[in-house]
Amino acid sequence: MLLFPRLDRVQVDALLEEFELRETAPNHPNGMYARHFGATGGSRISDSALADLRRKILEIASENGFPNPSNSAQRSTFDAQLTAFFADYPNLNAGEALRDDVWAYITTVLVPDVVVWRFKGITRRRFQGGVRNALQRLWLRAKALDRGPKSEDRWKFVNALTEDAFVQIVERPSICSDSRLAQAIADGWIKIAQRVGKSAMEPVMRRAVVNLRLRGEIQVLFALDDTDLDSLVNRIFFKAASF
């Protein structure tokens, strides 16, 4: 396993203060002094491999307008393409990608310019590790919503859902950690959105997720087979939409 550099929250905040003083993020800041690695468990990833990761992220960003100002369609496409990239990037298919401080390093030191471009400024929660991190949230989408390389429409859910729908799935560990449940919810969302329109789905999704989480308190959802799980999710979505 390759060990990635890590950056704790204090160091993230210190670097962001430097960015804010300059009113922008540098192209590739020197955060080498602040990073640290896990003491055991694998070999340290090389600086050349990190540079290659930056190059690949920059390529996807450039396809969608970086470094020029972007529109919502470009940002959405960037998110979808980077989600697919993370799914197949071998160096992030291990436990290191589960660490918030690894993603804090990637966003704050490796590609801060891309983060500033994507979110139109320096927003701290997009650099700090966690489900709101600019790139970590996309890796979580990949883990939860990837239908697999053999699927005819592998990224159906990633390409269809709105940002609010992603938040409802990815920011709830009880859902995000179970890819079958996450994908059943995504499928239920699509079915209802086809009837009421995406613009009407925010309250429907929130009611459905609340009811599913409550159901999960009295029923072991991961024990259901695919047919029963899909049937349950569809019933809850229909009720949430008041059909």
Rank of each mutant, 00 (worst) to 15 (best):
F4G: 03
L7G: 04
R9M: 07
V10T: 14
Q11P: 00
Q11D: 15
A14E: 12
L15M: 15
E18P: 03
F19K: 05
R22C: 05
P26A: 10
G31V: 08
M32Q: 13
M32I: 12
A34K: 07
F37P: 00
G38D: 15
A39L: 11
T40D: 12
S43P: 00
I45A: 03
I45Y: 07
D47M: 10
S48P: 00
S48I: 08
L50G: 03
D52M: 09
L53D: 06
R54V: 03
R54Q: 02
K56E: 15
K56I: 06
I57W: 11
L58G: 08
E59V: 12
A61T: 05
N64R: 06
N68Y: 11
S70K: 14
S72R: 13
R75W: 01
S76F: 08
F78M: 07
D79T: 09
A80T: 09
Q81C: 09
Q81G: 01
L82G: 04
L82F: 14
A84K: 11
F86I: 00
F86V: 02
D88W: 00
P90G: 01
P90T: 07
P90F: 03
N93M: 11
A94F: 13
G95S: 08
G95H: 04
G95P: 00
E96Y: 02
L98A: 14
R99Y: 08
D100C: 01
D101T: 13
Y105L: 02
Y105T: 01
I106M: 02
V111N: 09
P112C: 08
D113T: 09
V115A: 07
V115L: 06
R118K: 13
R118M: 12
F119H: 15
K120L: 10
G121V: 03
I122C: 02
F127H: 09
G130D: 05
V131W: 06
V131I: 09
R132V: 05
N133C: 04
Q136N: 10
K143L: 12
A144E: 06
D146P: 05
R147Q: 13
P149T: 01
D153Q: 11
D153G: 06
W155L: 06
V158H: 05
V158R: 05
V158N: 12
A160H: 09
L161E: 04
L161Y: 03
V167E: 15
Q168Y: 10
E171T: 14
E171C: 09
S174N: 11
S174V: 11
I175E: 04
I175V: 11
C176A: 15
S179W: 07
S179D: 14
R180P: 01
L181D: 00
A182V: 06
A186Q: 02
A186T: 06
A186I: 02
A186K: 03
K191H: 10
Q194H: 13
R195C: 08
P203H: 03
R206M: 07
V209Y: 01
L212T: 02
L212E: 06
L214P: 00
R215T: 12
R215M: 13
F222S: 14
D225G: 06
D225N: 15
T227Y: 11
D228W: 01
D228A: 15
L229P: 02
S231P: 04
L232W: 05
V233A: 01
F238G: 06
F238E: 14
A240I: 04
A241R: 10
S242D: 15
S242Y: 10
S242N: 15
S242I: 09
